[in-house]
Design a protein around this nucleic acid. Structure first.
Lengths: 131, 131
DNA sequence: CAAAAAGCTAACGTTCACGTAAAGGAAGGT
DNA sequence: ACCTTCCTTTACGTGAACGTTAGCTTTTTG
């Protein structure tokens, strides 16, 4: 019936506190079963937590991450109007594409700075392995 | 001597409130001249505000944006140790690259959902112009 | 010239995403 | 028996990034 995780298992794996995990539960992003009082997390929760972390790295709020996760969630779809749903998907895509260009612009500027910096240090550019 | 902007000019252009602009000033991200009491912003502030907005779209905090802007700022560089500086640049690059893969993963998932959605609607894929 | 619009400072309020402390239950080890 | 570890709930605390209100000055416009 798939792997099970305690709250500290997840906390360790994703490098967050148990508080954080409970918080996401409070916000209905995770829905662990209970064994007595204890929370037992399944594979679905594990996947969701991965999505949550990715969302956070992308700077989305918990609420936005909710929305994103619901986009992957079949149940949410069939009960909602598809056109509105498509609209949401496209808005998300738009935002993400904006982020892509933001990132590549920033990266190229950083590359430039890195180059200047290396020149000043008289180093040769070994863009690759670091010890 | 370059274009000048009032606080509402900038607010309108960047779609933020004047409060926000003043807030960035308080945080030393902008440094307008004063004409009496009034803040007068120059081209440098305009550029910085652009960088700030980009940083925000990337989910950076004001403090991190400070750091990023300082990376472009020559004055800050010459007085600091170059190696530490390079280290910072590389950390930023690392984070941004992570974001890039996060985004492309998310985008491809959204594309998939979009496809499914279109199929359900019986539409043909006109990926391009929308009215 | 009077009213509206734009600007200012100062200070308190708000939301998000947790942190942190208090008080306690249940399992396992020695 | 006692301690340690893991887990629980409840609840107040916190920093960031502004929002909002109040009270006052300056500039623009009909």
């Amino acid at each position: 019936m798939g792997p099970m995780y305690s709250i500290t298992d997840l906390a360790r794996e994703f490098k967050v506190t148990t508080r954080t995990i409970r918080y996401y539960g409070d916000k209905n992003l995770l829905s662990p079963k209970r064994e007595g009082q204890r929370r037992i997390y399944g594979p679905r929760d594990h996947v969701r937590l991965r999505l949550i972390m990715r969302g956070k790295r992308l700077g989305f709020s918990i609420e936005e991450i909710q929305g994103l996760i619901n986009l992957y969630d079949v149940d949410a779809t069939e009960s909602s109007q598809l056109n509105k749903f498509l609209e949401m998907i496209r808005q998300r895509q738009q935002a993400l594409r904006q982020q892509q260009t933001d990132i590549s612009e920033t990266l190229s500027e950083l590359d430039k700075r890195e180059g200047e910096c290396m020149a000043l240090l008289g180093n040769t550019i070994d863009s690759g392995r670091r010890k």
